[in-house]
Design a protein around this nucleic acid. Structure first.
Lengths: 252, 252
DNA sequence: ACCTGAACACCGTTCAAGT
DNA sequence: ACCTGAACACCGTTCAAGT
């Protein structure tokens, strides 16, 4: 059912061409391939790699099992040996790109660490814009778990506990997801954006603040993300200090 | 819901040819609605009401144009006189439920106001769980605009300007969206949740913090939302105070 | 102005059958 | 163990034709 749960690490090597081309080009010990038991022509890693290429180049609405299989040189029904459903493919794809989110190597304080991870996280999601349509599914792939683990461990070291630990973890995660999703929502042809802005101006009586302060025209998305992330981190930091003060008060 | 329906009756008398030409605009709100003359058996309000009922009772993957039309007692193709695409129906539905988000009647300070709106907003989205799958589209329906207007106006009165105003507005919006989306992601059969938790415990070497602090088992979602919202508001409040202090310093 | 059925060009998924 | 084609039960949308 939820084969997205399995622990297979998706390796993101883009093998161009596929098996047939490789078999023709490589040398002897791989060439007598007809031995059926050796290596299946298809596997999850190849399926996910090709799905990612398809998603990145054509978008999520163009990913169908038939088109994916065709790119892989198989009939669509073959995919169902390796994967239970199309949703499984999407779950695997989403976790695969989460693997691209870098984790800091040297600790630089919880705030720096967290800012580093979340900034990279958002960048990855906006690089693969289709990913914003896939949030809202259970997040238990190995790559997202590794990043949530890092995030929560960092907050724990910073001094948060219990409900505050959970609130800070989810608050920060929600911030990344929300930022990516809402930013992706504004990704439209410039002409349509013009229309939308006109629409807004035409109703400036109803939306005076939005019309006056450029609801549609804010294009410093990165700055907005960083600034609002800092508000959240400021609030968390204040909580950490409150917690520390109370801890000191309680020590015998 | 019916108020949302009133909102969408922005009528412009147009011949069919003209309407089709304007249909080049991709988003519902940017296209004129067709004008009913006598007493058509079908109209947008009826379509949206029925679509909402269908979404609420059966979920988003069960909403098809054919099933929707059947419930309305028509052939599926009839819908296309009133609406250009299925996506338009979904956009109309999403904005319709945003109309259920209450705005405070008496001002009670920016923090109280904003907490009130955002709490209601999240409640509405979780009441119509399908809505979390529809974020990530341009947000220019009348109901969401009214709420964004309220949010930004409140922050403006609180003393924010320029980039800080934008950052606070988007940060708060992202917080609601992110909370609703990620909470909806955990909405699964208890048995599957058990499996997921087991999976996590089985790899507690890799995810020690998550395993020890109940990543899967946190069920005080409301409390978590409120707490993390307060971190964000604390950070915004600190920014407001910084801005005020600088303003005082600058006054002659 | 509104509604219809037929038709087009697709979908995801199952399954008996092949090797 | 892996792959196949045929087939099922659907989709969203267009369009000539009706009233």
């Amino acid at each position: 059912m939820s084969s997205a749960v399995n622990e297979m690490q998706i390796t993101r090597n883009r093998a161009k061409g596929g098996r047939r081309a490789d078999a023709a080009a490589r040398n002897v010990w791989l060439k007598p391939a007809p031995t059926p038991r050796d290596e299946p022509t298809l596997n999850r890693a190849r399926i996910v790699d090709e799905a990612l290429a398809l998603l990145d180049s054509e978008g999520i609405e163009r990913l169908t099992m038939r088109r994916l299989a065709e790119r892989l040189g198989h009939g669509s029904t073959t995919l169902y040996w390796h994967v239970d459903t199309k949703d499984d493919v999407l779950d695997l794809c989403l976790d695969a790109i989460y693997g691209e989110v870098p984790l800091p190597e040297h600790t630089e304080g919880w705030r720096g660490e967290i800012t580093f991870v979340l900034t990279g996280w958002r960048t990855v999601m906006l690089r693969h814009r289709w990913s914003t349509a896939l949030v809202g599914r259970p997040m238990i792939g190995p790559n997202i778990l590794a990043r949530m683990e890092f995030l929560q461990a960092s907050l724990l070291r910073a001094g948060l506990t219990d409900a505050h630990l959970a609130a800070a973890t989810w608050g920060l995660y929600n911030h990344v997801i929300g930022s990516a999703v809402s930013r992706a929502g504004w990704h439209m042809p410039a002409e349509e954006r013009e229309q939308a802005q006109q629409h807004l101006s035409a109703h400036s009586d109803r939306y005076p603040t939005l019309a006056a302060h450029g609801y549609m025209l804010d294009d410093d998305w990165d700055g907005t993300f960083t600034r609002s992330l800092n508000y959240l981190l400021d609030g968390i930091e204040a909580q950490i200090e409150r917690g520390a003060a109370r801890g000191i008060g309680r020590t015998p």
